[in-house]
Computed example of a mutant assay.
Amino acid sequence: MRDVEETLEDLEDLLQDLQERQENSVILIEGKKDRAALGALGIEGEMVQVQDARGIFGVAEDLSGCGKEAIILTDWDRKGGQLAELLRNALKANGVKYDDTIRARLSMLAKKEIKDIESLPSFISFLLACRERGGQQGARFPPP
């Protein structure tokens, strides 16, 4: 595991980037649990579940029609990676500007410990607890 303090600082920066996003940008997520996890971390604003009745292309068309931009925030497991690729293609085809750098940075920071957005709050709590205990090296998430 990377240094606990470094990881926490990087995660805080990413969350701040999400909080300070432009008003015309929408966070594209996979499901309700992702929305709840982001809400628990103080991330508010418009979020769209991409696996709804409209389908991925329908979501991209709607964003294009509204002139909105997208932040792709799917999980970083295999399914989430495939979904992110489909989203990039659909958004590009509809002329929608998108950002997938936050997802990539999250994946790099947490890939060894967690694989999805819904686990972020408990992962951050775990890191905070490690920091309280003096940055315990070798601690595993989730704790045994």
Rank of each mutant, 00 (worst) to 15 (best):
A37Y: 10
D13F: 02
I102A: 00
Q49I: 13
E85T: 07
F123A: 15
G58A: 06
G55M: 06
D52L: 06
V59Y: 00
E5G: 10
G134N: 11
L109N: 11
K112Q: 15
I71N: 08
T101E: 14
A139K: 01
R105V: 12
E5R: 11
A53T: 12
A93L: 04
I114R: 04
E9F: 08
G55E: 09
L14H: 07
I43H: 05
T101L: 01
R54S: 14
S107Q: 11
V4K: 02
K115Y: 15
P142W: 08
G58T: 13
K33Y: 05
F123H: 11
A53C: 03
I71F: 03
D116Q: 11
D99W: 04
K115A: 13
D99Y: 04
A37P: 07
L127Q: 12
V50M: 00
S125M: 10
D34W: 00
F123G: 15
N24I: 00
T7I: 13
L86W: 11
M108Y: 14
G55Q: 07
Q49T: 02
F141V: 12
A60Q: 02
D77W: 06
D3I: 03
T74W: 10
L128G: 07
R21I: 02
L127P: 14
R35A: 04
K115D: 10
T74F: 09
T101S: 15
T101G: 09
C130L: 12
R88M: 11
K115F: 12
Q19I: 03
T74H: 08
G81M: 12
L28K: 03
P121C: 10
L87H: 04
D3A: 07
G138V: 15
